[in-house]
Design a protein around this nucleic acid. Sequence first.
DNA 1: ACAATCTCTACTAAGTCTATCGAGTTAACC
DNA 2: GGTTAACTCGATAGACTTAGTAGAGATTGT
Lengths: 151, 151
Amino acid sequence: MLSQKARYALRALTALAELEPGAQAQIAEIADEARVPRKFLEQILLDLKKRGLVHSTRGKLGGYTLGRPASDIELAEVIRTIDGPLALSPCASRMAYRKCDDCLDADTCPIRKVLLEVRDATAEILENRSVASMIEKPVSRRRKTAPRKRG
Amino acid sequence: MLSQKARYALRALTALAELEPGAQAQIAEIADEARVPRKFLEQILLDLKKRGLVHSTRGKLGGYTLGRPASDIELAEVIRTIDGPLALSPCASRMAYRKCDDCLDADTCPIRKVLLEVRDATAEILENRSVASMIEKPVSRRRKTAPRKRG
DNA sequence: ACAATCTCTACTAAGTCTATCGAGTTAACC
DNA sequence: GGTTAACTCGATAGACTTAGTAGAGATTGT
């Protein structure tokens, strides 16, 4: 399961992505827009900042902007930043592999094999969706085919 | 992440699947074979039994067997039994949908959309792997192609 | 009756999750 | 240079979950 914190992070980044180009938003605005408790959001934004996903300005006219273009922020990176590895088990993580405490042989473990498949399938999706893809407008009713994701 | 309990359940079922046809195993044997704390395993086996994944015999010569052929026990069902829905969010579950507390509109939520994709990809894998697939022998070195999974 | 086994409820220690608090730091503005 | 408004950061707390233990009860073979 995704944590509530990760869902908040995704909503906060989406809110930042919806700003006009060059504009910044203050914590209070983001909290309001993304429906996140303000003090909790502070923590989240700090985590995102450490990872470079957002950029902040301090002082009286301070605020936040995305650290990169929204189309360059993969959902996978957001989730990894907040919740850690995508895999269902540390031994099935490719970015942060760790052997199970009670595993006899990671190379032949059949559970690990299938969990790796699940991890790869999950990563395939989340590494190919960006924050920009979250703010695409709903499909117009007149269209028959959906617009392509991530041109 | 899968819980430790779910990993134990998978190992315990694997141990049962490795028995000779018709044989049963006692908790102590399974605990030993699957490397699960014995009292904890008792709870796990009860959960699996409620779901019909194992069958038990009480009394002096009691023990456990699989409730169905190993090839009919999907890993997805095992994991759902122990850890609950596969989805990364209750709102992205197809078997146990529940609206997010703070969701404005589940139909248009872009986070939910991508989480549904992840859930489907995960389910596709875990619903097509059975406990039987966990005990297939390692591929012989002489073969060039991998044997088919779940004939 | 006895022993061995599964059944079931309760409990606990440790950790995680979801926040909240408050003091500190930075920068604009008068 | 002081005030104000913003971000920074560590500590804390309550509720919940996880992983495991304890022990009494029920069932069955001998």
